[in-house]
């Protein structure tokens, strides 16, 4: 295990922010800490980095008890949400910082920094100051700076949070590829489930300071342990007292075995997908919706006012709402 967090509890004042959190991160993995705002993701990441001390519990990094080590001695790379670029240093000196602190020879520093700048495609901007870079470039500089010291683990706090949607998407794929290349154990924080599913190989869902679920993207998406996780990881709707993914519902004009009758309220065409909004009988006006392909919608001739039958597909994951 690259990181073992055991029974960590942390409060700011009297508000508990992490409650008895235990998380293991496998060596070489790319793990996402996913959860709603204020759930304690940053705090957990900072506890791992040593920027916060847990009230109770331990943190092991590469098998060594790091609980009482200062961040200086933990050998972690940390990338801050707002980059924390050293404003008075050039891109080159930013990346070289950790190596200069370690008093490496000048030639070695030069070589290593240029290598990293190439890796993050900033070799041409080495002499610029952070204020002369775009957000995405600053982000990549921060990443190179963290990688320069060859950390045992790389921790990224909302690495793409401050970037616009387009750049975000690009950097996501890039981070995935970078990880495949560098293979350093990486934990990144995000509140965007799509980002987590796309990039990570393991997802830790954290909410209200507690770990709700851990698993591969497919596991947490398809087998959420509770309605909260299910809602957080993707679209859900409610039929017959169950939470179901809207694309896991069969829709039919004729009655189906074990189906629920409903009336179509609206049909919204969103390109390839069609979103069918329905009034389910016996659900006191709470609307549900079903996601179907355009082809199916056309074939069935779905239109507002039609009466249909809905039924979760055989393999669908359903969560009974009443049980919670």
């Amino acid at each position: 295990m690259a990181i073992e967090v055991r029974d960590v509890t942390k409060s700011f004042g009297t508000t508990p922010v992490l409650r008895d959190v235990s998380v293991d991160v496998e060596s070489g993995s790319l793990t996402a800490l996913l959860g709603p705002s204020g759930g304690g993701k940053s705090t957990l990441l900072r506890v791992i980095a040593g920027l916060e001390r847990p009230d109770i519990g331990t943190v092991h990094i590469s098998g060594v008890d790091a609980t009482r080590l200062s961040p200086q001695r933990r050998d972690v790379g940390f990338v801050f949400q707002h980059y924390a670029a050293f404003k008075h240093l050039t891109v080159f000196r930013n990346v070289a910082f950790g190596l200069e602190i370690r008093k490496r020879p000048k030639d070695e520093i030069r070589e290593r920094v240029m290598e990293l700048l190439e890796l993050v495609h900033l070799e041409k901007l080495a002499d610029r100051y952070p204020s002369q870079l775009s957000g995405g470039q600053r982000q990549r500089m921060a990443l190179a700076r963290a990688l320069a010291v060859e950390p045992k683990v790389l921790l990224l706090d909302e690495p793409f949070g401050a970037l616009d949607a387009q750049v975000r998407k690009e950097l996501r794929t890039w981070l995935r590829r970078l990880h495949d290349e560098v293979h350093v154990t990486t934990v990144f924080v995000t509140h965007d489930q799509e980002e987590a599913i796309e990039v990570a190989d393991t997802i830790v869902v954290l909410a209200d300071g507690e770990v709700k679920q851990v698993g591969s993207p497919a596991e947490v998406y398809d087998h959420p342990v509770d309605p909260f996780v299910m809602r957080f990881l993707g679209p859900v709707t409610e039929i017959g007292g169950d939470l179901v993914r809207p694309h896991d519902i069969e829709i039919s004009a004729s009655p189906l075995d074990g189906g629920t009758p409903a009336t179509i309220a609206r049909v919204v065409r969103l390109g390839f997908e069609v979103r069918v909004e329905v009034e389910v009988d016996g659900q006191d006006g709470r609307e549900a919706w079903v996601q179907v392909t355009r082809e199916l919608a056309d074939r069935l001739g779905l239109a507002p006012g039609d009466t249909v039958t809905l039924r979760p597909t055989p393999g669908a994951r359903r969560l009974a709402l009443s049980a919670v």
Partner: peptide, 16 residues
């Protein structure tokens, strides 16, 4: 204090 924290994670002591 973010820049200072970044420096710490890169191995800088308080004085550094």
């Amino acid at each position: 204090d973010e820049q200072e924290q970044a420096a710490h994670t890169l191995g800088a002591s308080r004085l550094q």
